[in-house]
Amino acid sequence: MKKIISVGLITLFGMSSYLLADKKLDETELGLRKAPLNDENKVQLQNFIFGTGSAGESQKIERAYENAPPMIPHDIEGMTPITQEDNACLGCHSPKIAESIGATPLPKSHTYDLRNHKEITEGIAEQRYNCTQCHVPQAQTKPLVENNFKPDFRDEDKKHRSNLLDVINQGVQ
């Protein structure tokens, strides 16, 4: 019985390899950019337009799903590069300041050191200083492909707030 299954699988694999061998894709068909992958000369970058409002004047963008990193709804020109020593984001999004000026405060997950299991009382966890690793400005573009995904938030507050640290700690106690 094992020999019959083995022979059948080998035959199936051989036939599929033979049928697929004749169908070669042109390298312009492999991605969404429609240009050869090894030639940057024909690639034309779009002139993306980002949110034109300055920080504090822009409208918050609903998260893609619960606990997703929120998009940056304002221009970040002049705020980068972000380093551990110089992080312009903390000027508004630090939990001590954010509420008073109407900015989204950093969630508890950013002021907790997951490696050493301790809360950070001043600043943020050193793993979290590079804000643009997860949070990016939203360009005003047309989608390249249709997206029918609809997020399912457990409550309305999670569209603009994170409870990631609570979720991580569920069942740990």
Rank of each mutant, 00 (worst) to 15 (best):
K2H: 07
I5Y: 11
S6G: 00
G8Y: 09
G8N: 09
T11Y: 15
L12K: 10
L12T: 14
F13M: 14
F13S: 14
M15Y: 13
S16Q: 12
S16G: 03
Y18A: 10
L19R: 05
L19D: 02
D22G: 10
K23G: 00
K24E: 10
L25P: 00
L25W: 01
D26V: 03
D26G: 01
E27V: 02
E29T: 02
R33A: 06
R33P: 01
L37N: 05
L37H: 02
D39G: 03
D39Y: 10
D39N: 14
E40G: 02
Q46D: 10
G51F: 09
S54C: 04
G56F: 13
E62R: 09
Y65P: 02
Y65Q: 05
E66D: 12
N67C: 10
P69A: 14
P70A: 03
H74V: 03
H74M: 03
I76D: 01
I76E: 00
I76C: 00
M79S: 01
T83G: 03
E85Q: 15
N87L: 09
A88C: 04
C89I: 08
L90V: 10
G91S: 15
G91C: 04
H93A: 00
S94P: 02
S94G: 07
P95V: 07
K96L: 12
A98R: 13
I101K: 07
I101Q: 04
P105K: 13
P105C: 08
L106R: 12
L106V: 10
L114R: 14
N116A: 11
N116P: 03
K118A: 00
T121A: 12
G123K: 06
E126P: 05
Q127K: 04
R128L: 02
R128T: 01
Y129G: 06
N130W: 03
C131I: 14
C134A: 06
H135Q: 05
P137D: 08
P137H: 09
Q140T: 00
Q140V: 01
K142L: 13
L144Y: 06
V145S: 04
E146N: 15
N148M: 09
N148R: 13
N148I: 07
D152G: 00
D152R: 04
K159M: 06
K159T: 00
R161W: 07
L165A: 04
I168C: 06
N169F: 05
Q170S: 11
V172M: 14
